[in-house]
């Protein structure tokens, strides 16, 4: 029995059409599903200035977390009484940092990252300094501005 070359070519064409039709169907189902699962871009609220509390809220050599828009930030009152503010997101793996009144440094409990009072990395794995904000005193209010 000999193979009919015309019939073979026809079979090949049908396989190609069916296969590509099936593939296209799968893609047309997957594409909207993947797009659905990808979270939409939401514009960040463009907060550039917030009130971080009253001067009297913080004693020297202490700190507190405050909201800077939707993100946590750290307001530190140094032992000398000066105010400093930083993004509280550790540049290593995004944990929220804290102030250590003993070492007088900013410290991340997750992987032991350490930063000085300028936000510069002085120990541990963080690759970059903390983002520093500008602090102004308006009467009794501590106002923090993105530099």
């Amino acid at each position: 029995m000999t193979a009919d070359p015309e019939s073979g070519a026809r079979r090949g064409l049908i396989r190609l059409l069916l296969g590509s039709g099936f593939g296209a169907s799968v893609l047309s189902f997957l594409y909207p599903a993947v797009k659905f699962m990808t979270p939409p871009e939401v514009a960040e609220s463009s907060v550039n200035q917030v009130s971080a509390g009253k001067v009297t809220d913080l004693k020297p050599n202490s700190a507190r977390i405050f909201r800077f828009g939707s993100k946590p930030a750290l307001l530190v009152r140094t032992a000398a009484g000066e105010f400093r503010a930083f993004s509280a997101a550790c540049t290593h793996l995004n944990c929220t940092v804290q102030y250590s009144d003993q070492s007088r440094q900013i410290w991340c409990a997750c992987h032991n990252g350490q930063f000085d009072m300028n936000g510069k990395v002085v120990g541990g794995p963080p690759p970059r300094p903390l983002e520093q904000f500008t602090v102004h005193l308006q009467g009794e209010d501590v106002v923090v501005t993105r530099s």
Binding site: I65, F66, C95, T96, C108, A109, C110, H111
Partner: peptide, 20 residues
Amino acid sequence: DPFISAPAGIRPEWYFLAVF
């Protein structure tokens, strides 16, 4: 609370500890 610092002594489940 997204607006507190990570507490001291924080660590993941035991099976991620070596990587941590």
